[in-house]
Each structure stands twice: as structure tokens, then as C-alpha cells.
Design a protein around this nucleic acid. Structure first.
Lengths: 349, 349
DNA sequence: CGCTAGTGTGTTAGCGCTGCCATAAGAGTC
DNA sequence: GACTCTTATGGCAGCGCTAACACACTAGCG
């Protein structure tokens, strides 16, 4: 009876308390390898043996140690997400979409925030992530970043979401250009001579695309292109710009680059006594759930963030599982015009 | 020349490509142990040696392998977050606060979404996380959950955010009761005979607290307690309930349990031709950035989500670093009444 | 009966890192 | 000069797991 272990715990020394495969193996009277096979649902284990091992696992409350597994296999079951602020609706919804899709595939998410999307910060975040053990990374590149000069460690699959990095990496984004075109054409179709644009900040990818497409749509239609006004995505900036627009009698249609700024614009128009949509039509972009309940309800462009997240994860998993780089280039997620009360046909000045 | 390694890579067999400490050690002409000391910023390394090692690290692009470190130390540098939907403003802001605070402490976040906050789901998520190697877990318990019957593996520090789990775990939450009281008293102070309440769903912790405190405040003031109306946090539900309230001439003040529902209520009142705040005052809860730009601007209760996140992380880190359980019980984060245009003194019926 | 093919299980050797201990060299003390 | 004490470094073992191979055993075949 000398060498008999107490039976409850085996690991001494640096053991960290939790039962290990060896403990399960001992209890079930099999080798650790067989326990591993059961834990990973492998074949070539007799049914009776499997039951015995499972019983031992339950008895000890065994949990596989992911760190050890990762060390042995080089795979982690985790996708890293680098995101700028979670204060923006789109970023959050993209994150949510990625999280949902990843979970469905048995992957978890390692989230790293950056206070600013500078190379320094993104490189640090990337380092923290790869160091932190991930199989792939999604960068929610809401702000313009020069992907070429980013020094990412090689061999880690990357997907860019909401970005422009299509030349360097596989990328996924809503059809920003199509959405801006839909919005602008919608307002022109309603009879407005032209459309004013409240753009997002110039360092934002989405803002650039929407801005460029708005301009192009007007030019193609042979309409005058009014001065662009730049906001910062917040309702506050929309409100300030709206105050300026409200004072211009020739303004009859405004396309704001997101719903929050549209809200601010509408508020400013109200305060100035200009009716929406009676005097001025306003269209937003994003379709936040609240936008339908603004006063008036906001005509806007709906994005499918869940689909975007799913595609990000799919591309990443393909790279991870096939062990080959995915094709570069942009996958475009369709958008949809949602017409509500904030836009109406123009009766003329 | 027989046994000489090519010099570029050392690991064969199952080596996963990335340079290891051994590679750095070889290049710098020191032992792996010394490299480890440098990598971890330990003392007792001569300055010249440290420089040499750092140079070798840079030359090889060395990144420590976190899985191996975790396996050796039993610590992971990661905090797990279990959250119900990211569709709710409060959840997102809490997550953001936690992420920011964690990063400041050098921790990263492992995010696990659950589709429903059932025991089954939370247990699974918890298993996935502990298995996934975290040093502690924050549960954003936006929905009521019986923490006692939750079977969490022992030894993993846990903090509950936005929950009621104060008896079982340390917990952090905004001063829900105080906020609801402030909102209700504000409306009473304006001369309203009583205050109607649009509550959140009954399975939500915050909704319960706000509801109970609203009721208590009215009772203490000796005012009649009108029928409670339950929404589901969405603007849509607020709109439906608002339609009902708009038809009741005795309604002069409404306290909605969040800003979105308040938005829906205001919209319904507008449509019914009841002026806000002329005929009806409306107060919300959360202070989303947009709320200031509703029409009229929304009087609401501001929560400090960043502070909440910081406290969650602090409590967790104390447990992790001190290796002793934190005190159970609730830490209350103060809230603040923000008065805007949607509430005004009542001129009588 | 010797051959192959397949199945269930065990043995071995790491994955890359750190904790602990040993060692060597210098510095100060009596 | 024999003794501590400190500082810089290396050696070794092991964290818990899995890939790769080895091995025994069964079955089917001509």
C-alpha cells in the first residue's frame, strides 16, 4: 500500500489543481492516449471503453486544458478581433455578427480594442493577439489604414471588415457605394433638384465610399454637386451641420452618411422651422432599429451585418482549415433602401 | 559540418514554424532561460546581455508563445466575458468599459455570446471559457438568472455585471433604483399628479429594479400607482405602448425604462397629436448619445458604463493577483439625471 | 497456414515555456 | 585566506496534451 495515491488528486509540484488526462486515465484504467481519443471524439475506441472514460471524466469533473492542447497542436480555436471604438453602431453589429458566426463553428472570440487605428496600435493589438494565441484575425477597419505598411507577422490569416484593404487581404464590406447611390437616386427620383451630403469623417472608409458614390451619382445625373459637409458620425455633429443647412433655402434634400447624423440634421431642421419631409427630405445610412421611430421615421439604407460577420468567419475558417491563403479582394454584402417618412416628393421651391 | 543546423530554423517535426526561445537563445549565445528572463522583464540580467537578446528577438521576429507560457504558469492574461445579445446599448457599453479597463491592465478579452441566458447556455459558455483559458469571468447578467443553481467550476473568479447576483458573487451595477427614483421624483416635482411607467421585460434585472423603485417612489409620495406596461426595450414596443397611453387623457408623465422605448413613446404621442412636453412629459433611462437629439431632447438618467467596467476588472484582478476570493455583494455605480426638453412642468389638466 | 488489412490500445517524444536549483564569479568581512 | 553574501547565468524537469509509431489481436483470403 505504500505507493498508492490518495485517489483524489494526483498532480503535485506545479500542478494547478484541476484534474488532468492522466488522472482520468488512471481512474478509468486506460492510457492517457485513450482518454485523449475520447475527449476529441475520435474513432477506434470500443464503446465500453468510451463509456468508462466518460464516466471517469464526469466523476472528476475533468476539463481539457486548452493551453496544453494548443501547445501540442498549434491550433487554438479562437479568432481575434481588432476593433476601434465600440461606440459606433456598425462596429458593434459587425462584432456581434462575427461572434455569432464564430460560435456556430465552435470558435471563440478574443477581442482587442484599440483607442486609435494607427499602425502602432494595430501592430500592438496584432502582436497581443497572435501572442495571445489565435488562429486568425478580423480587423474591423472602420478608419482608413495603410494595410501595406502594416507589419503583421506572416502566416496568420487575416480578413478586413469595413475596410478598403482588398488589395492586400481578403475583405468584406457592405455595398457602401451601392447604398449611397440608392439613397441619392431615391431623393432625385422624388423630384429634388440635387442632394446635399453630410459625410462621415474623412479618415473613415465607409464615409469615403459613401461620399464618393454620392458625388458620382449626382454627376452622372447631371446635377450640381453642393458643398460637402463633414461630420464625425455623432448626432451632435449632424445637428451642427443641420443648423447650417437649415439656413440655406435651396436645400431640399439631405443624405447623411449615417442614421445618427441624420437624426441631428432633422432635429436642427425642426428647430429652424423647416418641416421634414415637407420642406426638406432626409435620408440616413445603417438602419438602426431606432431609426424607424424617429419623428418622422427615417428613410435609410439597411446593412446586413450578420451576413458580413458570417462571411468574415467563413473566409477565415477556410484559410485555417485548408491551410492556404484565401483570395484577396472584396466580398460585397448587399444593402437595401428602406423608405420611411423622412423623404417625400418635392413640390418645388 | 555534419550536425550543424542550417541556422535559419531549428524546430523540425511538429514545430509550428515561428521562432522559439531556443532559436533566440542560440542566436544570442545565451541559454533559453536568460531569454525568458529578458522576455519577462526580470532583473538579474546584465545590460549587455539583455541588449544582445533583444537584438536577437528583433532579428528573428520572436513572439512568445502564450499557450506554452500559460501551460507553464497556469495564468493566461485573459478575462472572459459572457454576454447576452450585443443589440442592447447597455450591454455594449459595459463590454466596452470592460475591454478598455482590461487592456489598461494588460489583459485581453475572450468574448462568448449566448443566445439566451439559460443555465444550460451560461454553463456551456463558462465551460468554453475556462477551457478556453481565462483567469476570471465577467457575466453581463442582463436577464435574471438564478446564480445559486449555476454550476460553475470552482476556483475561477467571477464578477456579475448588470445583475442581481450580489449574494453569491461580487457584483457591479448602476444605481438602478436611484435612477428610477430620480426620474420619478423629477416628474412629480414638475407638478405631475403621478407618473406612468413603461417597464422593460420582466426577466430583466435592470427592468425589475427600475420598476420596483418607480413604484416605491410613487407610494412614498402618496401618489396613485398606475398600471404598469411592459415593453421589451425596443423602440417598437415603446411605440405600441405609447399608442395606448396617448389615448388616455389622464396620462401627463411617462417614465420609460430605457431611451429607445422612450423614443417610441414620444413618436406615438406625436402621432396622436399630444405634445411633448406640452401635454405629456417623457423621461428615459441610459442616456444614449442620440437621446439629446431626439425631438424634443430626451430627459434621461445617465449611467457611467466605463466606470462599471473598470470596477468589474478591478475586482477580478484583485482576486487573480491576491489569489483570494473577493467580497460578495453589490458595488453601486452612481447615476445622474439629465434634464432636457422632453419634460416640463405641468400646467394642470 | 502465411499473408494482408483493419481495429483497439499503449508507448514515446516532444510542443515552448517557466520554476527551481546549481553553479560560477566577484565583493565584502573577519 | 577561508567565510559569507550577492549577482549573472545555465541545467533540468515538467506543465497537460497530442502525433506518430508500435503492438497485439481479429478477420478474411487464397
Amino acid at each position: 500500500m505504500t505507493a498508492v495515491d490518495g485517489g483524489s488528486r494526483a498532480g503535485r509540484g506545479r500542478g494547478h489543481g484541476a484534474p488532468s488526462m492522466a488522472d482520468v486515465a488512471r481512474l478509468a484504467g486506460v492510457s492517457p492516449q485513450t482518454v485523449s481519443r475520447v475527449a476529441n471524439n475520435r474513432t477506434n475506441v470500443e464503446e465500453a471503453t468510451r463509456e468508462r472514460v466518460l464516466a471517469a471524466m464526469r466523476a472528476l469533473g475533468y476539463q481539457p486544458n486548452i493551453a496544453a492542447r494548443a501547445l501540442a497542436t498549434g491550433r487554438f480555436g479562437t479568432i481575434g478581433v481588432i476593433s476601434f471604438t465600440l461606440n459606433r453602431y456598425g462596429n458593434v453589429r459587425t462584432l456581434d455578427g462575427i461572434t455569432t458566426a464564430a460560435r456556430a463553428e465552435g470558435f471563440s472570440i478574443s477581442l482587442v480594442g484599440v483607442t486609435a487605428l494607427t499602425h502602432q496600435e494595430v501592430n500592438d493589438a496584432f502582436t497581443r493577439l497572435t501572442t495571445q494565441a489565435v488562429d486568425g484575425v478580423v480587423i474591423i477597419e472602420s478608419e482608413v489604414l495603410d494595410m501595406r505598411s502594416l507589419r503583421l507577422p506572416p502566416g496568420v490569416p487575416v480578413v478586413i471588415s469595413d475596410g478598403h484593404g482588398g488589395e492586400e487581404f481578403p475583405a468584406v464590406d457592405s455595398d457602401q457605394a451601392g447604398g449611397a447611390r440608392l439613397a441619392t437616386e431615391h431623393l432625385l427620383d422624388l423630384g429634388h433638384p440635387t442632394v446635399w451630403h453630410v459625410a462621415g469623417p474623412p479618415d473613415s472608409n465607409s464615409a469615403r465610399h459613401r461620399h464618393a458614390s454620392w458625388r458620382q451619382t449626382l454627376e452622372r445625373a447631371g446635377r450640381p454637386v453642393p458643398q460637402v459637409l463633414f461630420g464625425d458620425w455623432t448626432a451632435e455633429s449632424g445637428y451642427l451641420i443641420g443648423g447650417y443647412l437649415a439656413a440655406l433655402p435651396e436645400v431640399s434634400a439631405v443624405f447623411a452618411a449615417n442614421d445618427q447624423m441624420a437624426l441631428g440634421v432633422i432635429r436642427a431642421l425642426h428647430e429652424a422651422g423647416r418641416a421634414v419631409p415637407g420642406d426638406v427630405s432626409v435620408v440616413g445610412f445603417d438602419d438602426m432599429p431606432e431609426s424607424a421611430y424617429f419623428w418622422p421615421g427615417l428613410t435609410t439604407i439597411r446593412q446586413d451585418f450578420d451576413q458580413g460577420g458570417r462571411i468574415c468567419v467563413d473566409i477565415l475558417l477556410e484559410q485555417i482549415r485548408m491551410r492556404r491563403p484565401a483570395e484577396k479582394g472584396m466580398r460585397v454584402v448587399p444593402v437595401e433602401l428602406v423608405v420611411r417618412g423622412s423623404s417625400a416628393s418635392w413640390r418645388g421651391a
